[in-house]
Amino acid sequence: MIPTKEELQKALEQRYGAALYRRIAEAAVAVCGLGGLGSHIAMALARAGVGRLILVDYDRVEAGNLHRQLYTAEQVGWLKTEALAEVLKAAAPYLAIEKHALRLTAQNLEPLSGAGIICEAFDCPEAKAMLVNQVAERWPEKYLISGSGMAGLGSANSIRTRRITPRFYLCGDGVSEGGSGMGLVSSRVMLCAAHQAHAALRILAGEFDV
């Protein structure tokens, strides 16, 4: 028997107070890319009570994803949008989820239009740069939180959040690239994901400094 919507709402309201609870519950956040960063960003936001998540990824879960992404072994082969929605719903059953199984390009960004905050969580550096440039051009009023540099076993303390412009935050160490050395390590990717999710929650709380 899962808790009722009212029970879960009450538990969060007691933590946040009614005003902050409402700001978080009424927020819509987009997560672009549902790999090691995006899957953990989405879960942190879902548990924190964000009301609506817009999930975007064209890819399917692979065996080689399980070491750092939030999926279960039985979900290998599923679309990440479907797999993540199921995992999120198990923790936050009343969360509203929009699923977009597509590869975002400069030509099809419309699914992001309803989000006040966009989390960039792609793997590919060109896709990261595309999204940052396109959001700045089309929606300068939106907050954008990007991740760059979180591979390897480098110090956890070198992962940080920078505020590049009033509405563009950049998390990571800025330099540790995936695809070389030992690649992406779950704990360090999760650190960066936590920075990104935390930046989103702070923005919702009206705390804009880093």
């Binding site: 590919c124 550096p125 540099g149 330099v175």
Partner: peptide, 23 residues
């Protein structure tokens, strides 16, 4: 789209953010 029309001015502070892969 605005790189060509953007002229750097005396005293400007510019940061080039280079993205690396991984996510």
């Amino acid at each position: 789209s605005r790189y060509a029309e953007t002229v750097l001015e005396e005293g400007d502070a510019v940061e080039i953010v280079g993205f690396v892969g991984g996510g």
